[in-house]
Design a protein around this nucleic acid. Structure first.
Lengths: 245, 245
DNA sequence: CGCCTGCTTGAAGCGGTTCAATCGGGGTGG
DNA sequence: CCACCCCGATTGAACCGCTTCAAGCAGGCG
């Protein structure tokens, strides 16, 4: 079942059949479902065991008492929430399902000794953690220095590329289960303005929306507009020769 | 020498004398200095070995071709740059010294097997990584949803609290080697506006600047103004009883 | 001395917010 | 089957927080 995680990791690491089997075993023990809108964890909670997203979208968010809210990250199929987070005393953010979600609980002891037993797999998991951190930096840049148009476009580019990495795109189309309020909270904009920006993207022929699907008919142009350079996702597979050193 | 790191880790973990010795050994092998303004790494570079900041400040930043720049994080004494980052192919951001800096290079092999040999220390290092991620989320919130006044105030509160954790504050005062351009790039504002915000903070009696030192005469008021809740720094020491479970 | 870098202040402009109203579609209960 | 409702999308208009442009100023250094 954890095919999305496996696909993602295989973009950058050569996993042995044994590694793949281990991932599958890791994710099979206990799975559970959540409905759209349900919270996996709230700010202040004691963190639970790490989990793997098998299906569905969720988001991390932080809020103020006056209602201002920032979505600080998206959790897509194949993403972890959150390797090691249970070392902390309390959650510093909330996590809520955006769509119905299927999760696998990962027992901490299953990860122990992994570095010795399956070094390639352990490195792949460490890689994933680093990529999450890199994405978080890019989001800081996004809300800090991009214009509204660039911000929204960048978010769409990132979503598309991340879904592509796990095989969840079809041609130029993919899911977009976020409503405009959520897009606003993810980009630090107001709902009204997100709406206007989406209109501009539609008119420019860079975006088509049909229900919860989006299509990006001219991805190169959208990437340029968004100042999107995919390097921060670190998805390039290392050249085979690179392993000889 | 790595007393700042040790102080920070001891806020949250009980390190044995052996753990402390290991940290010291880790950081003694090769140290080197950089002048203010020098780059440790540039976007696109191949990441080098992990390093520990023994003295001085640095910042991580990302830039666009048109000159827009966002500082996405601060590296203070006792911080790592960057455990495991060398797993990636290329740097997704730059790191530059803000003040003269003293660094220790950490050899990757020194970290291997640490989880088995010194589990408490390994957990403390994992904790540090998680805290860095949490800070990055808070920065996303900061530039995304706080007003200019709140943003600058929040940055000052965070700096003070982080320096306090490593013993680098004196009463209500601490270093602030960032100039207004750097404060602007860290908060996603313009230099001009940062200047006006600092004036407001000064007039409100919440901030005094003398050269590269700052004083926060009314920290509770500043914390309130900034909507600063220090939980995201995860500095609370676990209660001794908590270890019995 | 004169220059350069960083700080400071004023004034005008604009990108994005806020307030307000309308619209449309899907679900629900009478 | 339809009336109603509710949530999300949409659009207009006024406003404002922050940026931009422009100038002056202070202090440190060659």
């Amino acid at each position: 079942m954890p095919r999305y995680l496996i696909r993602k990791l295989e973009q950058v690491a050569l996993l042995s059949p044994e590694d793949r089997r281990l991932i599958e075993e890791l994710a099979h023990r206990r799975t559970f479902r959540l409905a759209a809108g349900e919270e996996l964890a709230a700010e202040g909670d004691r963190p639970a065991a790490p989990r793997l997203f098998l299906e569905g979208w969720a988001c991390r968010s932080k809020s103020f008492a006056d209602g201002r809210r920032q979505i600080v990250g998206l959790l897509l199929p194949g993403d972890f929430f959150d390797l090691n987070l249970d070392l902390l005393q309390a959650m510093d953010h909330s996590v809520a399902a955006v769509t119905p979600v299927l999760l696998a609980e990962i027992r901490r002891d299953a990860l122990e000794g992994l570095a010795e037993r399956r070094p390639a797999l352990a490195r792949a998991l460490a890689w994933d953690t680093l990529v999450q951190a890199s994405i978080q930096r890019e989001w800081t840049l996004n809300v800090g220095r991009r214009t509204a148009l660039e911000r929204v476009a960048h978010l769409l580019c990132e979503i598309f590329r991340r879904l592509e990495a796990v095989g969840l795109t079809e041609g130029a189309a993919c899911e977009l289960p976020l409503n405009q309020t959520e897009l606003a909270d993810a980009t630090g904009l107001s709902v009204v303005h997100v709406n206007r920006v989406l209109r501009r993207l539609r008119i420019a022929g860079l975006l088509r929306l049909r229900g919860r699907q989006m299509e990006l008919p001219d991805l190169p142009a959208l990437n340029r507009l968004a100042l999107f350079s995919p390097g921060y996702l670190h998805l390039a597979r290392p050249k085979p020769e690179a392993s000889i050193r």
